[in-house]
C-alpha cells in the first residue's frame, strides 16, 4: 500500500533552495521587468536610497522592480515588479 503523497509540504522544505538564492550577491542576478518585460541586471537598476526604503527602478521604463525596507531587527523585500530572477550558481 502506498501512502498518498501530500499535495504540498511545509515551507521549511524550501529552506535549502531559498538560501541558495538569497545568500548570493543578487545584484548580479538578471530579472525581468514586470512592466516592460526587459531583462535587467539588478546592479543596473536605478536605485533611490534617499527614502524610507530602497527602491530599484527599471532603467528602461522607470517601473519599480524591487523595494527593500530595513528596520532595526527586520527587513522587508518586495519583488512584485520582477517577473523572474535568474541567479547563476557556482559549479555544482
Amino acid at each position: 500500500m502506498n501512502t498518498p503523497t501530500p499535495a504540498h509540504v511545509d515551507g521549511n522544505a524550501a529552506a535549502g533552495v531559498l538560501r541558495e538564492v538569497f545568500a548570493v550577491d543578487l545584484t548580479a542576478a538578471v530579472g525581468q521587468c514586470d512592466n516592460c518585460g526587459c531583462a535587467v541586471v539588478l546592479a543596473e537598476a536605478r536605485l533611490y536610497t534617499r527614502a524610507p526604503g530602497m527602491v530599484g527602478r527599471c532603467p528602461g521604463c522607470q517601473a519599480i522592480l524591487f523595494r527593500v525596507v530595513r528596520g532595526p531587527d527586520r527587513t522587508w523585500l518586495d519583488l512584485r515588479g520582477l517577473r523572474c530572477i535568474e541567479v547563476s550558481l557556482p559549479d555544482s
Partner: peptide, 18 residues
C-alpha cells in the same frame, strides 16, 4: 510604504514606524 513594512497609521508620538 505601508505595504512594504511601514506602519499602517504612523503616529510619531507612539513611534509607529514599522
Amino acid at each position: 510604504w505601508e505595504s512594504a513594512g511601514y506602519h499602517d497609521y504612523g503616529d510619531p508620538w507612539r513611534e509607529q514606524r514599522y
